[in-house]
Each structure stands twice: as C-alpha cells, then as structure tokens.
C-alpha cells in the first residue's frame, strides 16, 4: 500500500539491510583497529581489549533496564495532572 512518494530509498528493506551490514562492519572495525592502535587505559580495567565497546554496550543495557523498571513504578497517563 505504499505510494511511490512514500517509498523513499532510505525506508526500503534492502537499504535497511545494507545499513545494518555497514554498521556491523564499522563496529567490527572499531574493535579490530585496537590491534594497531593502543587505547591508553588509566585504571587497569580499561586496558582490556574492546573495553570501550563492552562497557558502552553494557552501560546502555543497564540504563535501559533501570529506566524500564522505574517506568513501571512512575509512568502515568499523560493527562495525569490535568492542569
């Protein structure tokens, strides 16, 4: 049911597949680059290979989980205050 106007090249499934592939390659490259470029660690832990990648990923997962739990407690309909 998409009209030609809606079928923007960015939204086509093939483009999205290509974007994911490109993204995966870039992610892999940032980790592989560490074999050639030394990331200076300051506190021991951060000397590990791909520390930035793992830390960034896990930190985000943790924050989304915390937000999710907090949301269960604190979310209200958006007309809650009616003011």
């Amino acid at each position: 049911m998409t009209t030609p106007q809606d079928d923007h090249w960015l939204t086509r499934p093939t483009t999205i597949r290509r974007l994911w592939t490109g993204f995966a390659i870039v992610l892999a490259l940032t980790v592989l680059a560490e074999l050639g470029i030394h990331i200076k660690g300051y506190f021991g832990l951060d000397d590990w290979l791909a520390f930035g990648a793992v830390f960034g990923f896990l930190a985000c997962v943790a924050m989304v989980l915390i937000a999710k739990v907090l949301g269960l407690l604190l979310k209200r309909p958006d007309d809650f205050y009616r003011d």
Partner: peptide, 15 residues
C-alpha cells in the same frame, strides 16, 4: 582516545 570514544558510542548505538 578517538578510538575509545568511537567504540563506546557506536556500541551504545547497537544497544
């Protein structure tokens, strides 16, 4: 430093 931040941010994007 650039590589560290690229790893940190791009993997956040993946998450």
């Amino acid at each position: 430093k650039v590589l560290f931040y690229l790893q940190l941010l791009l993997f956040s994007g993946l998450a």
